[in-house]
Design a protein around this nucleic acid. Sequence first.
RNA 1: GGGAGUAUGGCGGAACUGGUAGACGCGCCGGAUUCAAAAUCCGGUCACUUAGGUGGUGUGGGUUCGAUUCCCUCUACUCCUACCA
Length: 838
Amino acid sequence: MSSRYNHKIVEKKWQNFWSDKKTFYSKIDKSKKKFYVLEMFPYPSGKIHMGHVRNYTLGDVISRYKIMKGYNVLHPMGWDAFGLPAENAALNEKRNPKDWTYKNIKTMKSQLLKMGLSLDWTKEVTTCHPDYYKHEQKFFIDMFKSGLAYKKEAEVNWDPIDKTVLANEQVIDGRGWRSGALVEKKKLSQWFLKISKYSEELLEDLNKLKDWPNKVKIMQSNWIGKSVGAEIEFNISNQNKKIKVFSTRPDTIFGATFIAISIDHKLSKELLIKNRDLSVFISKCEKQDSDKVKIGFNTGLQVDHPLIKNKKIPVFVANFILSEYGLGAVFGCPAHDQRDLDFAKQYNLEIIPVVKPHNFNDSEFKVNDKAYVEDGVLINSEFLNGLKIKEAKDKIISYLEKCKIGSKKTNYKLRDWGISRQRFWGCPIPIIYREDGEVLTVDEKDLPVKLPEIENFNKNSITLDNVSGWKDTICKNTGMKARRETDTFDTFFESSWYYFRYCSARSNKPFEQEDINYWLPVDQYIGGIEHAILHLLYSRFFTKALRDLGYFKINEPFKGLFTQGMVTHQTFKNNKDEWIEPNEVERIGSRYIDKKNNDVKVGKIEKMSKSKKNVVDPNDIIEKYGADTARWFMLSDSPPERDLEWTETGIISSYKFINKVWDFVNLYNSYNILEINKDEKIINDLKLKINQVADNIEKFQFNKSVAKIYEYVNLLNESILKKTLSKESFKWSLEKLSQILQPFTPHLSEELWEALGNKNACIKETWPEQNINELEVNYNIAIQINGKTRDILVTKELFEKEIVVELASNKDKIKRYIEDKKIIKIIYVPGKILNLVI
RNA sequence: GGGAGUAUGGCGGAACUGGUAGACGCGCCGGAUUCAAAAUCCGGUCACUUAGGUGGUGUGGGUUCGAUUCCCUCUACUCCUACCA
């Protein structure tokens, strides 16, 4: 046996072992409890980065731990393979995005294999493969037929030089990323999914997600943005027309002093025809969209206040009214809404307070620069006067309903999901437009609609639309000419159902009932917080939509969610204010210098990014120190949900730890203490640590598990130095160490396990849970005088109060404090503290 | 503007339900080993101190026998979101 630990040989050996023995291949086994652990699948951008390493290490700890706890674990991996970078690379390198993508997948897969992850690669899924995307084309057809998918006009970013639609990330400071042209807004007919139909369910079911971070649930809840209010009709004076508005504050209706409608409200469009000034105003609004200055256009129209006789209020078209929310029209109550107040002051509109704070007299209360939005009492509001806001709301709504001029109404911010992308490297939308104007879905037997295989990418943009010949087709039923839809799906479409596909990855059907019923939902999903809203909300929606289309009966896809922190690193700048890489920086004392001996500015600790040049390549780290070292470092110190700062000293100390553990083998081989009489205490203490490691894994606090393993190792080391451990117990301790290390540093674990003479793999062992009732626990009772700890009493049992007081009083130190003083009060918390108040 | 969160040694972080603040790791200091260095090993490491103690968890207050933990005030930072009526 080699006495030195060679991570390259050892890690390769066990990776081959797991692969040869198919250790992590999963099959349905109804005799076991299942556990589905999943990390968010990667986009194959080229090579893995530290964020991936952290993500997959966290998942692997859970996976291996659950395996050892006897669960039947599913832990798959795949590729989110459609997307813009492949198109960019295609243009830059003049090659097919498919080749580029598959090349990256190959590279990244080999890197993942080197991490020693417990993945089931037989379930690998690649979303750009027709065998994957044909199923989502079918989903889309079902959605179309059931009315969940529909077409409507929507704005896109248009590059007038490259004559292409740009994704948001291709617009930099309002200009096209390649051409530099000013980007224009253009309206196109595009596909949408009716996620808004599920607003209430998506909101309501958040309550069921007990194992999700609160933060994420709050973010989704805000995004869905439910608000309850009323719709109210205003008659336009002297006309037989109405304007309907939505308000969450119908209680302030008596303070309404104007009506504001959006620039593309139906009424605005009507007025526009005859009013040139209005059209000038509207085009002005369209240009300065991000501007927060509120401007309005007085239409000259007035409406009758529905509750105050003979009161007329003006109608404005205003830039701050959203056309997509509510009814695109509001009544303005300047006294109780800051936006309305800003607007009213600018156009000299009336400000009538209708709610006053509780501690004011009616006549004293005035609104000046700040709208009053707190709770209070209604004033100037006829029959609402004296009521609190909540009461006034209820009363006014029932009044409006009685008079048939309004009704209670719930609104949601959540808007339908626009899934059309005018791109090339995405899943084609299976629709054809026949020459007579009919919109038809592609026949199921003709799926998949495959992407064209083209080699020539010498243009400035690639989209399906400009691939010659691809879109021309015929309607098979009629023989009429037809044109294919050239939009592709948003790539969130693929990631909305991949976790279902994993469990039936090679099936001809999208998934098998039996697999879904057994494996879903995902028990533990792990990924970055950046997906808190879109990906996770779309996936939840997709699950509910597929359920309603009859695919299965699952309501929620992810039972448990964990959002990990980022991997960060120190940044550096040289004397020309350029970012420089950490490996070009040297530290001498408190000074940092570059290779030319110039001073280097130490910047903030930031997320690793190429632009700031503070990236550490996992490949280099694994090569140099090994996967176990990288994994151990990822798990040490930083709690998984917080940011982790990558440091050179940190990785080195992890490396030292790996080697230190291995050195125990050498120590063991030359160890010759045979007597076992001094063992009991140390074994007892080690057993306590083993359980603490598991407790912390269960709580997702791996940094604390790591600390407990250090304590285990320190205890072991100490007793070996003191020779209080027998050889037999030494062996036992190392075997247990192998087992508790398995989730964290699996290669080291197996190597150590084997070196101790074991034939079967350590991953096949049961987690060494200790029966806590058989373990001896020492109680350290803090003896306090007036709440200050003065001494520690160590006992082996939980004694009665009287006994502890007696034991404590006999201690010299305590005696000195008590002396002749009288003990007024005794507080005893069994096993923890004894407080004597004198 | 709205929402969420964080604050503990030189650093990352522990501290259960209100019960010994600083576990564990890094760094630093001292020592052993070595021709020497690296590596390794051992010991120390919150501050002050009259060596008995005293102070100490962003600020100021409160509740309590006892507060990093609960309540109120203020400050700083981070993230999300943004004219959502």
